[in-house]
Simulated scan of single mutants.
Amino acid sequence: MNLKLVPVRAENKDTLINLYQFYEYDFSRYMDTDVDTNGKYALDIDFYWEGDERWNPFLIEVNGAIAGFLIVLFENMDTDPDPTHVIYDFMVLHKYRRTGVGRRAAVEAFNMYQANWSLAQIKNNLPAISFWRNVIEDYTDGNFTERYSPDSGNYIQKFSTKK
Rank of each mutant, 00 (worst) to 15 (best):
A120H: 06
F69Q: 14
T79F: 12
T15Y: 04
V92C: 05
P57Y: 09
Y25F: 14
G102D: 04
V107P: 00
K162I: 06
F159G: 02
N12R: 14
N12P: 07
A65D: 12
M31K: 09
I122H: 04
H85N: 01
N124A: 09
T79A: 04
K4P: 02
D138F: 11
P83M: 02
V72D: 10
V35T: 08
E53I: 10
E11H: 08
M1A: 13
A105I: 01
E53M: 11
Y41Q: 11
A42Q: 09
G142I: 03
E61V: 01
L3M: 09
M112W: 01
R98H: 08
M112Q: 13
R9I: 07
R147V: 05
R54A: 10
T33G: 05
Y23F: 15
Y96D: 07
I136V: 13
S118F: 02
E146G: 00
A10N: 05
Y113S: 01
K40G: 00
V6M: 07
G153Y: 14
Q121K: 05
R29P: 01
D46N: 11
N56C: 02
I156H: 12
N116A: 08
F69V: 10
Y148D: 05
R97A: 09
T15I: 14
K162Y: 05
N76T: 03
I45N: 03
P81D: 14
L3F: 03
P127E: 05
Y20H: 14
G39H: 02
N38L: 04
F144K: 03
Y155A: 00
G64S: 08
T79K: 04
R133A: 01
N111F: 03
Y20M: 07
N125Y: 02
D78A: 15
D14N: 10
D46M: 05
R29H: 11
L93H: 03
K158A: 06
G64T: 06
